[in-house]
């Protein structure tokens, strides 16, 4: 079987991707954290991707395909470290891919790179500018990553490189910003705003990654789940009580808490619970035939208290 290298394999999504890929690939993983219950045949190298050993894995294992998931997606760590892991980490990974004959690369970015703006088109396609940096500088590094991978995509036409931009991903085993937000006991929301939000199940995203590998797609693709509902309706379905605070109060509060380092929720993230950031996944569906299996009800049940 051909070899598949997964970075960030011990994360919730990494594990799901690995388990699904096992039947078609010999799976190797890299992660700072251990995966004690890794299934048989999955080899996990536990070290920091910024170390030299990372290159050794490429040199010795010679993977045919790479799935890049090792991104810091929360704001608890030092911004410099986050930037280093996300941007420098990707840069090194791309260099190794080019040098050691990787044939296929899938990078999982996020639909957040489009930014949540009041005047966003309701279903943005892949040509939409990445406006996140305008209102949400904390995730500028993801836009930089996209820039690097985009350049790589054109420079190495022989490597099937794809960037996936999935919508809000929920699942029992996945820990991300939106999941954590929706698991707060009393969820704070912004008064007078209730944007349509798209959700997808983590297992569906893992499948989308596998489908991208299988179909050897090349290019940038939005990936979406079964549909959209207003944020507050989603919270009701999940069974989380919420309360609404006026916009100005929310900004002042979050700004203060964030600058004091008490609550690592960047003020720019507020826009994502105010304004729409919904995407069209037409291109991915046409290229791969992918359809999410989990319904909205199943997605909500997966994070219900």
């Amino acid at each position: 079987m051909p070899k598949l290298l997964i970075t960030g394999i011990a994360g919730g999504l990494g594990r799901l991707v690995a388990k699904m890929a096992r039947s078609r690939w010999e799976v190797i993983g890299v992660d700072r954290d251990p995966w004690p219950s890794a299934p048989d045949g999955v080899v996990v190298h536990q070290f920091d991707m910024r170390k030299r050993r990372f290159e050794d894995v490429f040199r010795t294992e010679r993977p045919e395909a790479v799935v890049h998931l090792a991104f810091v997606r929360h704001f608890r760590s030092d911004p410099a470290t986050r930037h280093e892991i996300n941007v420098e980490g990707t840069k090194h990974l791309l260099e190794h891919c080019a040098e050691y004959g990787v044939r296929q690369l899938v990078v999982v970015s996020s639909s957040y790179v489009y930014g949540a703006l009041a005047n966003n088109a309701r279903y943005m396609n892949e040509e939409h500018p990445l406006n996140a940096s305008r209102t949400f500088p904390e995730i500028r590094d993801l836009c930089e990553v996209e820039g690097l991978v985009g350049t790589f995509l054109w420079r190495y036409p022989e490597i099937a490189t794809s960037i996936l931009r999935p919508v809000n991903t929920l699942g029992h085993s996945v820990h991300n910003a939106i999941g954590n937000y929706m698991k707060i006991q009393m969820v704070p929301t912004v008064m007078g705003f209730n944007p349509m939000m798209q959700f997808m199940h983590a297992e569906d995203l893992a499948e989308a990654v596998n489908v991208a590998l299988e179909k050897k797609v090349r290019g940038v693709y939005n990936v979406a789940g079964p549909g959209a509902v207003p944020l507050k309706r989603a919270l009701e379905e999940i069974g989380r009580p919420y309360f609404s605070i006026p916009d100005t109060v929310a900004h002042t509060l979050i700004n203060t808490l964030f600058s004091l380092g008490i609550y690592r929720f960047p003020p720019g993230a507020i826009d994502f619970i105010k304004y729409p950031c919904t995407i069209s996944d037409k291109r991915f569906r046409q290229a791969t035939g992918f359809r999410a299996r989990h319904t909205l009800a199943e997605i909500f049940a997966s994070v219900a208290p």
Binding site: R122, G227, A228, V229, R233
Partner: peptide
């Protein structure tokens, strides 16, 4: 959709 919203809300 099953919650009574169309794609644009």
């Amino acid at each position: 959709n099953e919650y009574g919203y169309d794609p644009w809300g």
